[in-house]
Design a binder for these strands. Structure first.
Lengths: 213, 213
DNA sequence: GCTTGTGAAAACGTTCACAGCC
DNA sequence: GGCTGTGAACGTTTTCACAAGC
């Protein structure tokens, strides 16, 4: 519960992995864990984990470790995942479809609540029970459902336009798969560029070492 | 051409973006550029770009800037992309299909050369003209075609097995989409975890700022 | 005059090492 | 005795600032 300033984004991005490990532990019936155990299962060092957690408070018991269920709740609260968080997906292609399957199967914490596309062929069809909506419905749907997170899975040439529409619909965080630089004050953009990812891999394939996401 | 030691991986990962920007410039008919211009178009600072390039040599002309075509060639050579690099994809689901489309459409520098799956329903079918092969053919195909890069786009429970098979086939760099910690000496693993990506986005959606991939 | 290339400084993130507490 | 929480040390990455060169 202790307030702390200047939390590095890299630390925040590690939290969901800790959360996943904790969920695994819970499903194995483990009730108490340690930073050393979390380190083993996550691949990060125990000091790193303790530091990351310390940015947000003191959740453990010295000499004992962490209560799995309590720490899970803390991480959920910190990340804003106390209730499942709805996400809007723009782009109902293969990548979009893959994301719907991922997000609904794998994670219980976020889910795709609405899908949009501008292809008349796709509008009205269903993906995993979700009706693909026309772009015209975007703003109204997001407002109604209180969606603040958007995913851009459209071709490069449409990305900027979709970005503006998402911003206009008051989205505050975006996961962008298009290779386009998107920026706006008050909007956090996380880029995943599969093409450049593959290209840098070519370099590492030459003289390999190991690496962390 | 100057040799340099200790090149940070973060710098290498930025190079493909510079390469893309250069390709855009070339297609606009621009022949000479500057670090300031590249900065504008890439979102990184001009000093950052100059430093990144300096790890590999001195490619510019003081007072003038960089020759677009020359710098493009240098980056291709540095990244190991002088010829299009073949990549093996394991997992012919939606994500795999999306990657094939991405990698063949967007990028001229890497391409999916072979697809594998263990689902009899998928084996033998074609995706963008590529026949889906059974896992049994993996090692032979990769050896024959000299493929050193693999992409893991299979469900979590199969990821470790696929990883071992790719390593056995002498792959040296892997792009892993499964939420599984994969490690091996001499193999560079780049993880992309779409689920944790979405979850950390929930945090940034609360008090947004801007961010870089 | 303009832009690169680069040491030096600053900022940042990780690891160390241990005091504090069960 | 064991494990957390944390300041201090370390290493890495970014930014600064300017000399070098066209």
């Amino acid at each position: 519960m202790k307030p702390q300033r200047r939390i590095p984004a890299v630390a925040v991005r590690r939290l969901p992995l800790y959360l996943r490990v904790l969920e695994d532990l819970a499903s194995e019936g483990v009730e108490v864990t340690s930073s050393a155990d979390l380190a083993n299962r996550s691949g990060y060092s125990s000091e790193q984990i303790r530091k990351d957690l310390a940015y947000f408070g003191a959740f453990g018991t010295r000499g004992l470790g962490y209560d799995v269920s309590q720490l899970t709740q803390h991480l959920r609260r910190i990340l804003g995942l106390t209730a499942a968080v709805p996400v809007a997906l723009v782009g109902a292609g293969n990548l979009g479809t893959a994301l719907i399957r991922y997000a609904s199967l794998g994670a219980r914490d976020t889910y795709v609540a609405a899908v949009f596309d501008d292809d008349p062929q796709k509008i009205g069809t269903e993906i995993s029970g979700l009706r693909v909506r026309p772009m015209e419905e975007l703003q109204a749907t997001l407002r109604e459902q209180g969606i603040r997170i958007g995913v851009i899975a459209v071709p490069e040439q449409n990305a900027r336009d979709v970005f503006e529409k998402l911003c206009a619909a008051d989205v505050t965080a975006i996961l962008n798969f298009a290779p386009t630089k998107l920026e706006k004050r008050q909007v956090s953009v996380q880029n995943v560029d599969l093409t450049t990812e593959l290209q840098s891999l070519a370099y590492f394939a030459l003289g390999a070492g190991s690496d962390r996401a």
